[in-house]
Nucleic acid binder design. Structure first.
Lengths: 163, 163
DNA sequence: TCCAGATGGTTGCAAATGAAACTATAGGCT
DNA sequence: AGCCTATAGTTTCATTTGCAACCATCTGGA
């Protein structure tokens, strides 16, 4: 059934059109991308996005502590703790207590973890490539700069609202 | 305490640096922005972001059905149902059963809802303005185009992965 | 040495989210 | 009319998430 189209209220400057509202557009884009990618990791490897992020950091920075993961991924420390627990449980990550400071664990990919990671990387790259496919090199540079600036502005926003 | 920096693994092309990985950057940016905005709505008006989205659509398209809200906001229909229930409960939205098709409700802002909406709009605009502050007009246009292209590519991705 | 406060990490609980089942109404087909 | 399927919307349940409280360990100063 076709739902009758509604007449836009003529609210002029006093209304916001979500379709053109930057935060909404960002949110929609991110959700679409994240869902597509999450499906990929989940279906093939039973990994969530947080899991994948942990793997990615450990591949690049073996021996990271949970705290290192928090700062590198910007994930919540609880999310990190749980991802790590899952991955250790599944034999993808090895955990060893640091001898110097017994509060922290040194984490690294196991052979199994490295193997899974190596199989995911091309998929992740393909995803990114598909997103950027229609952008010319100049546009990609522009995107890079814009994202950096927006993130800085957002950090600012977040900081000032906080109190 | 300063955590000892880890040596990046020299994995060359086989590793992904999250900091430069587009889906991750998008996700991070969106989270930062959403959190900042959510805090704003929540603290002042006890509204969640889904609530705010429903208000925004109803302000522009009074008489929308729940289904209209779903297609306009891209929210899940369950989320819409719950937001609407909350807002009706709190007297911000009026619900009336459509006479022609008694399955659907016609929704609209109440006076109270309009008033809250009117008070939020400037805050939302300020947020957006703060994000765009440092961008020149040309850059804003570029951003607009890029977001449109990325969303199209992401929709594509989502569609192809689906099966 | 010993205590107070800071830091690393986990656990418990409550709220948010999503998929699927369910109710109610509509509309087409025989 | 009587049935079958589709649509609108809600409810239920299981999973995810985030905050806060918590335990263990470390560090610096009296």
């Amino acid at each position: 059934m076709i739902v009758r189209a509604q007449h836009p209220a003529d609210a002029g400057q006093d209304a916001i059109d979500l379709e053109h509202f930057l935060p909404y557009r960002l949110s929609r884009l991110t959700n679409t991308v994240s869902n597509a990618i999450a499906a990929l990791y989940r279906d093939r490897f039973g990994l969530s996005i947080p899991d994948w992020r942990v793997l990615a950091v450990l591949a690049r920075f073996p021996g990271s502590s949970a705290q290192d993961l928090v700062s590198r991924t910007r994930m919540d420390k609880v999310a990190v703790s749980r991802s790590v627990a899952r991955l250790v449980e599944r034999g993808m990550v090895n955990r060893a207590t640091d001898e110097k400071d017994r509060r922290l664990s040194r984490l690294a990919l196991s052979a199994e973890g490295s193997s899974v990671y190596a199989r995911i990387v091309p998929m992740a790259r393909d995803c990114e490539a598909a997103l950027l496919e229609d952008l010319e090199p100049k546009q990609r540079e522009a995107l890079d700069r814009l994202l950096t600036m927006l993130q800085a502005a957002a950090d600012e926003l977040d900081g000032t609202n906080e109190k």
